[in-house]
Design a binder for these strands. Sequence first.
DNA 1: ATGGTAGAGCATCTA
Length: 258
Amino acid sequence: MRIATWNVNSLGVRLGHVEEWLSYASPDVLCLQETKLSDGAFPHERFAALGYESAHNGPGRWNGVAILSKVGLDQARSDFSEPSPELAEGRFLIARCGPMDVVSVYVPNGRSLESEHYEIKLGWLRALGREVAAQRAAGSAPLAVCGDFNVAPEDKDVWDPAQLVGSTHVSVPEREALESIVSLGMVDAFRQLHPEDRLYSWWDYRAGRFHKHEGMRIDLVLLSTDVADKAGFALIDRFARRQKQPSDHAPVLVDVEL
DNA sequence: ATGGTAGAGCATCTA
């Protein structure tokens, strides 16, 4: 089973890119983030034409997450189990896709360490942790939590740790919040297969960051430990970041032998 | 310290 995640930074702009990528990468499940679409505007039929069922959670204008699946898509849910209004912004979606429960997340950016949005980000990660814990406790299917976490897990996941001191994405509380989710019984599947540095999934559009390969690895596929050792192949598709009118994120894919 | 680019949408806000 091939599971992928991609922050597309507007599906309206990137629909053609996604269709092309589906045709050559052929994932069984693709989680999307930052569709920037309302639910009514989501192009379900375009993906159905390629053999994918789809579910979407988005308010319009900002955020928006989706799951596409060609191995079935059932019980889609877009609220946390313990709902809380400020957390409902088109950032969470869970569905059963064949043998796995799959979550697509778009974690709040946080803006700056001083911002109230930084505290919201930490609270959101804690809420996601409770969701993962509940899911693991319910415990039937293996779980994949995929998406743009807006956290670089370690210093080797960023191009220049010194330049980022005092910034979001690398602060200790953010990394601890991510680690507390992982410690519930999840594995960073790409990192497990690729321990080396300089492997990024996002590059700022500005300042020629992609050209200089100055990026961060913030797009993750977390697999529950019961299937993590069945992940045999993982890839960040930098070609998708190099094409014309790209997203600022590259797709990340993981093959799990299920 | 700020800027640099991109997207939504038409003034800025978000990233």
